[in-house]
Structures are given as C-alpha cells and as structure tokens.
C-alpha cells in the first residue's frame, strides 16, 4: 500500500500557543483513520492543515508525493474532498444541485455543467442509494440524508481522500450507524477517510487506524485495539472507564455509570 498523504514535522501556532506540535503522520490508501482527542486538542486544525485551509508555519504536506504548496486550490480539490458536518443551508438548493457543486474543480471559470457532470452527480447519489432524493430540496431532507448528500458531493468531486469533521454529529443512532457502514463500504473501494470523532466506540467499530491527539501532539497511533485502552482514554479525557470484553470489539463504559 502506498501513502496518499503525509505530513512531516507539521507545526502550527497562533502567537505563542502551539496548536500542532511536530506532527508527523502518513496515511495509506483505503484506510479509515479516526482522530481522537479532547476539545481543543488540535484535531480540527490538523484537518484544516491537510485541506490546505491553514498553512502550518513549519512542516511539509504531500499528496501522492506532491507538496501541497505547489497545488492550487482547484488541483488540491481533485485529490482531497471535505465533508463538513451536516449543516442547514440558507437557500433551498436541490440535492442534485448540491452534488453538482462537487464538479467545480473540473470546470473552467465560465463553462457550464455538462451532461457528463450530471451523470457523475447522479452516479454518486445512486452509489449511496439516495438517487430518489435528487429533486428534493436540501433543506427539507433529514440530517442523515444531508450528510449522505455531502458525501455524494465529495464523490462527484473525484477526490480519493475524504476529510470529515465529526461526521455523525447531530445524527440519531440509526443514522450514525448507517453512515459509518456507508463509510466502511466506500473505504473497501479504495477511498481514504480521515475523520475526527468523539466516540471511541465508533473509532473501534470502523477504523483501521486511530491517531490520538492531545495538546497538539500525537500520543498514540496504531490499530484501534492497540490504541483505545482505559489508560489512553483516561489520558485524553480524564474519565475512568472499564473494559467489558465482548464477542466483537471490547466495550468501554465509564466507571460511574456501572
């Protein structure tokens, strides 16, 4: 497996405050990588750095061995797509129109969407089994459907790395699980997912790899079973948890709740 993204000695600080402190990571194709860490640990900053939205003061980021600094934002958009938390839109665009936006990096300034762009957009919707929603307005569909629409947009963008900031945030339990399953299926097709999450269970369930961040530093990096332990969870969140062995993955329950 080849590495699709790497970040070498990434440092990002605002004035004297270190947000990211010497981060070196490299991610392989087709993996789901979960970033775990408390609020303010630098997870979102790391995502923004990888997306080219923030420029680290030190360090080097490469996509397929191409330095990010040499890529314009249109070029970069063909490598990496951002799937934001499901949001409400001010204007009621149709689902199809939202997904078509993903074709933007493939368009010149004045050119219009072609039939081919529409085919790609519809293909992306069908892939996530939401083709029937295409004429619906984005503001009227459910939260889970909105999140799937945003993933379809990322698919239409043609990128192979998807960066997601707390993708299950605001979704109900059923939609959370269905979303994680869809992500899992797409990863088996070769898409790489880098996502932040606040749920160690979710990281355990779908990730191939977990990176734990605290105060801008990587404190653990490896498979979920290696990294997610009562010790590391205490280190991150200051919460005592007990491990309950089960047939599948171990389950962690806070001590006070037992």
């Amino acid at each position: 497996m080849s590495s699709v993204i790497e970040i070498q000695h990434g440092r990002y600080f605002i004035q004297a405050r270190k947000i990211l402190d010497d981060i070196t990571l490299s991610f392989d194709q087709g993996q789901i990588i979960s970033l775990l860490g408390p609020n303010g640990s630098g997870k979102t900053t790391l995502l923004k750095v990888l997306l080219g939205l923030l420029h680290p003061q030190h360090g080097d980021i490469r996509y397929h061995d191409v330095p990010i600094a040499t890529l314009g934002c249109r070029q970069l958009a063909k490598y990496v797509a951002y799937v934001p938390q499901m949001h409400r839109e001010a204007f009621a665009y149709s689902v199809e129109e939202v997904v078509l936006m993903g074709r933007q990096p493939h368009k010149d300034f004045f050119s219009q969407y072609t039939q081919e762009d529409r085919q790609i957009a519809l293909g992306a919707l069908d892939r996530l089994n939401i083709g029937h929603l295409r004429k619906r307005s984005y503001t009227e569909i459910s939260g889970g459907e909105r999140q799937l629409t945003l993933i379809a947009r990322a698919l239409a963008q043609g990128a192979d790395v998807f960066i997601m900031d707390e993708p299950v945030n605001g979704l109900d339990y059923g939609n959370q699980m269905r979303l994680l399953r869809d992500i899992h299926v797409l990863a088996r097709d070769g898409y790489t997912f880098i996502m932040t999450t606040h749920f160690p269970d979710h990281a355990m369930m779908v990730s191939d790899r977990v990176v734990m961040l605290k105060d801008g530093k990587v404190i653990a990096d490896g498979t979920p079973r290696e990294t997610i332990t009562p010790e590391t969870l205490f280190q991150l969140y200051r919460i005592q948890v007990d491990c309950i062995p089960s047939k599948g993955n171990p389950v962690y329950v806070p001590v006070w709740a037992m």
Binding site: G52, C73, L76, A90
Partner: peptide, 12 residues
Amino acid sequence: SMGDEEAQTMGV
C-alpha cells in the same frame, strides 16, 4: 453560499 472554507475545498 456554502461558506468560504467549504468553497475553497471545492476549488473556489
């Protein structure tokens, strides 16, 4: 109209 950061990640 999706917001600046989102727009930039789509190449605008």
